[in-house]
Design a protein around this nucleic acid. Structure first.
Lengths: 194, 194
DNA sequence: CGAGCCATGTAAACAGTTACATGATTCT
DNA sequence: AGAATCATGTAACTGTTTACATGGCTCG
């Protein structure tokens, strides 16, 4: 039910086509949730069937058509209910940590490479996240801008603050991963020499 | 293919029954990977079919029998190959962060409760993780002890160090989550007053 | 007219969760 | 005798990934 949450969340900002959503998932929103289009389109159809969203048909050129989905009142109610349901965090699987626990099975060079990939990955992410946080603070992120247009001004502060809070979370996560990878590389130096 | 990795990893420490593995997944190992028994038993059968592990039948009392799985040479080779394959971290889904991004849809009380649950969860985890790290350092963790018995002493340092490294990772993660939840609670105070 | 993007789907396979089911052993 | 624990499975369902498939539109 979590893809559905993400879809409803996006549609509270702006009516979108499946394709728009797919693109959001490739973009900044994708750092919180993502899904391939093969999961998006059928789910949108189901949600439409359940009255959570409704589609308006728009022409594309001469023959083409696209379905833009709008959240309905029922959809908003459902979304709010989901938001108000307190959920305990699920036990997580940690594939990276699991692999790290067995690094003695790797060649030292491979082990180093693995941690360097980890480091590079999260370093890149960190930069992206910092950029997003900055855009959000300045209220320049495109999706946030459309969102702010749809809600009264007295809510803007909270809307922005929670988006920033969420992305600060992934930012801190990235920093943590970077520090961890560095620690691992030091450990390798210690165990196997430089 | 990651459940399989976890199963092979466990069986490099000690031959185990499906039940033993299930219990390991309920225990400290479960913080890195876990699976229900309904996933474990069929996978063990498949791995046996592929020659990665073999079972010895052991009696339980008069009528009962249990299958204890031993990793084979082929299994060890496969495991080592997996370890040596450098993998780029997958894009993650962050259900907690996604929910946090839409906290303006919650009643302030619910929002606070949500973050308090988050805080309590990771606080509990942190304590558990710190306990595990301590046990690992002292080489007193049961599974680690059996592992050390099976491998030559010149490898012990690395074996212990990587286990510590992995659990230090989840420890740092927990600390990060705690700090994040506290920040969120402060934000709520700021936005909605105490 | 071809490349690249816009747009939407289906299908098969794989991974993970939840529920149903059974029976032996051990401890009280 | 009954409860708790050991032990092993199957089945249905949900969620995710990957591959296959199609066709229109826009720009050079």
């Amino acid at each position: 039910m979590n893809l559905r949450f993400a879809l409803l969340a996006l549609l509270t900002a702006d009516p979108m086509t499946g394709f728009d959503i797919k693109q959001q998932f490739d973009d900044s929103v994708g750092f919180l949730w993502h899904a391939p289009h093969s999961q998006i389109y059928p789910e949108l159809r189901r949600m439409e069937g359940e009255g959570l969203i409704r589609a308006t048909l728009e022409p594309r050129g001469q023959r083409g058509q696209k379905r833009r989905y709008h959240i309905t009142e029922s959809g908003e109610r459902t979304f709010r209910e989901q938001c108000n349901k307190v959920e305990t965090p699920q036990r997580e699987r940690e594939p990276e940590r699991l692999r790290a626990a067995y690094l003695e099975w790797s060649d030292p060079d491979r082990a180093r490479e693995q941690l360097e990939v980890h480091l590079a990955h999260h370093t890149e992410r960190l930069e992206q996240f910092e950029g997003i946080v900055e855009l959000l603070r300045q209220r320049q992120a495109p999706l946030l801008k459309s969102r702010l247009e749809r809600y009264p001004e007295d809510q803007h502060e909270a809307i922005v603050a929670f988006k920033v809070f969420a992305y600060e979370g992934v930012t801190e996560r990235a920093r943590m991963e970077i520090a961890w990878a560095r620690q691992g590389l030091e450990l390798l130096d210690q165990l196997y020499g430089d």
